[in-house]
């Protein structure tokens, strides 16, 4: 007699698919936040599976800081086309041009925080009532408190002390006009689970995740890519190194790690042996002890 036990990746997949279908069923106009990073790639892959043989019944939304790796943009466009999904792009530059946000100045300037305004504007413009995000609870201590269905008030704010309880398989996506939800189908995946799932499903990733030679410089213990978007300080020297990225976000706050891992097996071995969290290379989280919670309260991803 079979024992009817699921492997943990099957379990996580079944859960994520359930959440994706529930999102389609409970909301009028959901969007899937797609950045071209591995988590949003896995989420979009799961969405394609969840609605097979139909197409994904919602739009992909990319909030574009304008400070991207070209590899990410190329990948994004090809991936959306392969899925047959419609992609809409919210430009941070537009928010700056309209005077909605003010660009940070100086060598540490980043558009990371500005994305929140562009995201909330895009949500309002397209009347999205749910945005699917690739956030995982193991990523960061404030994310560990997230719900699958996470309520946002009419200002896009998260109130972590007053969240709706989530029990069993039951999700409450009811909202008042102007409010919306963030939905996180990958909540229970860990970084390792994501990599193992990518391997099992043979999902193609942007080349940035694998070792390559790149001009980088060191700042605060991170390796940043030399690019027109980050002014280098006087004492900072560019050098060519063999690196790869553990997370991919805006170029100004995504650090590389020295690595020779050139394929999935090697990346997984490296993740298993890692003594730093993947967000350890993200300068956006280092701005304060509660940087993520502060941004999330305001409406960040």
């Amino acid at each position: 007699m079979p024992n009817y036990q699921l492997d943990h990746l099957d379990h996580l997949e079944a859960e994520a698919v359930h959440i994706l279908r529930e999102t389609a069923a409970q909301f009028q106009n959901p969007a899937l936040l797609f950045s071209g990073g591995k988590d949003s790639i896995v989420m979009a892959h799961l969405a394609a599976k969840a609605f097979w043989p139909a197409k994904i019944p919602f739009l992909l939304l990319h909030v574009d800081t304008g400070h991207n790796f070209q590899e990410t943009l190329d990948y994004r466009d090809a991936f959306a086309e392969k899925l047959g999904a419609r992609l809409v792009i919210g430009l941070v530059q537009d928010s700056i041009d309209k005077g909605r946000v003010k660009e940070e100045k100086g060598p540490y300037a980043s558009r990371n925080k500005l994305q929140t305004v562009t995201l909330l504007d895009s949500i309002e413009e397209h009347k999205f009532d749910a945005c699917l995000g690739g956030g995982r609870r193991d990523e960061e201590k404030a994310r560990a408190k997230e719900r699958f269905f996470s309520h946002r008030d009419e200002f896009g704010q998260w109130d972590p002390k007053n969240q709706r309880p989530e029990l069993w398989n039951l999700f409450n996506g009811r909202y008042h006009p102007g409010e919306h939800f963030r939905v996180f189908p990958l909540s229970n995946f860990t970084e390792m689970d994501v990599w193992m799932y990518i391997q099992r499903e043979k999902i193609e990733l942007p080349s940035l995740y694998f070792s390559h030679e790149r001009e980088v410089f060191e700042r605060n213990g991170s390796l940043l890519a030399v690019s027109e978007f980050i002014p280098m300080l006087e004492n900072e020297k560019p050098e060519r190194k063999i690196v790869r990225f553990r997370t991919i976000g805006d170029i100004t706050c995504t650090g590389a790690v020295a690595s020779t891992a050139s394929n999935l097996e090697e990346v997984i071995a490296e993740v298993a042996a890692a003594r730093q969290t993947e967000r350890g290379t993200r300068s956006d989280d280092k701005r304060s002890e509660t940087a993520m919670e502060d941004r999330k309260r305001e409406g960040y991803f």
Binding site: R137, K141, N188
Partner: peptide, 13 residues
């Protein structure tokens, strides 16, 4: 962190 108490369910892996 301020109050030294746990307020909400946290999931750990």
């Amino acid at each position: 962190r301020e109050q030294g108490i746990t307020i909400d369910v946290a999931y750990r892996y």
